[in-house]
C-alpha cells in the first residue's frame, strides 16, 4: 500500500492516526478471541470489569475492612497486630449517653457535639446550596450579556484549593480582617465574626457554598440546556404562567440532574472538613466542630491518639452516608418509574 504524504491531496490524518490503533487491535485480537471461547460472554464482562474491581477493592474495600478491624481494637499502638481486641467497646463508648440530644450527658460529648453540628450543617448547607445553585443556573441559562464571563466567575472558586478558600475568608472575617476594616471605614463597629458562635457557623456554611456552588450550578445548567425549547414555546403559546412553567416543565425535567446534585452535596456536606478547619479550627469552642474534624483529631492530632475510637466514629459516619445515598437513589428510581408510567 502506498502511503499518502502529509500536505498532498488524498492524505487523511484520521486514517494515519488509526494505523497504530489497528495494529494494537490486531495484536490483542487472537488472545481475546481465545478468552471469549474459553470463558464465554459472561466471563468477558468479568474480565473487562476486573481492573476496576481490583482498584475498588484495594483502595476502597480493603481500607474499609482495615478500618473496621481498627474500630474493634484499643490502645495507643498504631499497627493493627500490636493492638488489643476490645470488641464493640469503642462503639459502646460512643453510644454511652443518657440523652443523645444533650452531648454533655455523653461519655464522648465531643463526638455528639460534632454529630449535632454536622446535622445542622447538612440541613442548612444542602438546602441553601441547592437553592443558590438552582437560581444561579436559571439566571445563567437566560440570554445574559457576557454569559460566559459570569459562568467563569461562578465556577472560579471551584478551582481553588480548600485551604486557600479557608485562608481567603479568614483574612476577610478575622477581627482585623477586610470586612471589619470596611465596616470601620463606614463608621460601623467592628465585630469578631469568627469568635461569635452563630456568625462562625454561618460563615462555615456560607464559605462552603461559595466554594462549591459553581460545580453544582454547572451540572444544573447542563440539565437546563438539555430541556427541549419547544416545550417552553408551547407553554408560552398557551399563556402558561412562569411559575407553572417552572414547576411543570423545568423542575420535572431537571429532576435527574437535581438528584445527582443532591446526592453529591449531601455527601460532601457530611464530609465537610478542610476549608472550615482552616477558617475556624472548629471554634469558637466546639461550635463548628464537625464529624471529620473529630475523627481527625481523635485519630491523628490529639497528643495521645486513639485510632480505635476514630475508626469507630468513621465507620458510623460511613454508614450514615451509605443510608443517605441509598435513600436518594431509591427515591430517584421511584420518580423515574412514575415518569415512565406517565
Amino acid at each position: 500500500m502506498k502511503a499518502d504524504i502529509p500536505g498532498k491531496p488524498g492524505f487523511n490524518f484520521g486514517d494515519a492516526a488509526m494505523v497504530p490503533v489497528r495494529f494494537a487491535m490486531e495484536l490483542v485480537d487472537p488472545p481475546l478471541r481465545w478468552l471469549q471461547r474459553t470463558a464465554g460472554l459472561g466471563g468477558m464482562a468479568t474480565f473487562f470489569l476486573l481492573p476496576n474491581m481490583l482498584i475498588f477493592g484495594i483502595f476502597v474495600l480493603l481500607p474499609f475492612f482495615i478500618n473496621f478491624a481498627y474500630s474493634m481494637t484499643g490502645g495507643a499502638a498504631l499497627f493493627l497486630p500490636d493492638r488489643n481486641f476490645v470488641g464493640a467497646d469503642q462503639y459502646a463508648r460512643l453510644f454511652d449517653c443518657s440523652n443523645y440530644l444533650d452531648p454533655n450527658s455523653c461519655a464522648e460529648d465531643t463526638f455528639w457535639t460534632a454529630v449535632g453540628n454536622t446535622g445542622w450543617f447538612v440541613l442548612l448547607q444542602v438546602t441553601l446550596m441547592i437553592g443558590v445553585s438552582l437560581v444561579t443556573a436559571l439566571i445563567l441559562n437566560r440570554d445574559l450579556r457576557a454569559r460566559s464571563f459570569w459562568r467563569a466567575v461562578f465556577f472560579f472558586p471551584v478551582l481553588l484549593s480548600p485551604v486557600v478558600v479557608g485562608l481567603i475568608w479568614k483574612w476577610i472575617l478575622q477581627r482585623q480582617g477586610l470586612l471589619n476594616f470596611g465596616l470601620y471605614g463606614l463608621g460601623f463597629e467592628p465585630h469578631a465574626w469568627l469568635n461569635d458562635r452563630n456568625w462562625s457557623f454561618a460563615a462555615a456554611v456560607g464559605v462552603s457554598i461559595w466554594a462549591h456552588m459553581g460545580f453544582y450550578t454547572l451540572i444544573l445548567l447542563a440539565g437546563l440546556q438539555a430541556i427541549p425549547k419547544d416545550l417552553y414555546e408551547a407553554a408560552e403559546m398557551d399563556g402558561t404562567k412562569p411559575t407553572r412553567v417552572f414547576l411543570r416543565i423545568t423542575l420535572p425535567l431537571l429532576a435527574p440532574n437535581l438528584l445527582v446534585v443532591i446526592v453529591l452535596v449531601l455527601i460532601r456536606a457530611v464530609q465537610i472538613f478542610d476549608e472550615v478547619y482552616v477558617l475556624t479550627g472548629g471554634g469558637p469552642g466546639t461550635s463548628t466542630l464537625f464529624l471529620t474534624q473529630y475523627i481527625y483529631e481523635t485519630g491523628f492530632a490529639a497528643q495521645l491518639r486513639n485510632p480505635g475510637l476514630a475508626a469507630a466514629a468513621s465507620i458510623l459516619m460511613g454508614a450514615v452516608l451509605v443510608v443517605l445515598t441509598l435513600l436518594q437513589l431509591s427515591l430517584g428510581r421511584s420518580s423515574e418509574k412514575k415518569g415512565d408510567r406517565k
Binding site: A192, L194, N195, G281, P284, L289, Q293, E297, A301
Partner: peptide, 24 residues
C-alpha cells in the same frame, strides 16, 4: 484575648505573638 483561646476546638495550638508584635 478571646481570639487565642476561643478561636479553635480540641487541643489545637494558637499563639498570641502576632497581636503583641502588632501592638494590639
Amino acid at each position: 484575648s478571646k481570639d487565642v483561646w476561643v478561636s479553635a476546638a480540641g487541643s489545637t495550638y494558637r499563639a498570641g505573638a502576632d497581636d503583641f508584635i502588632n501592638g494590639q
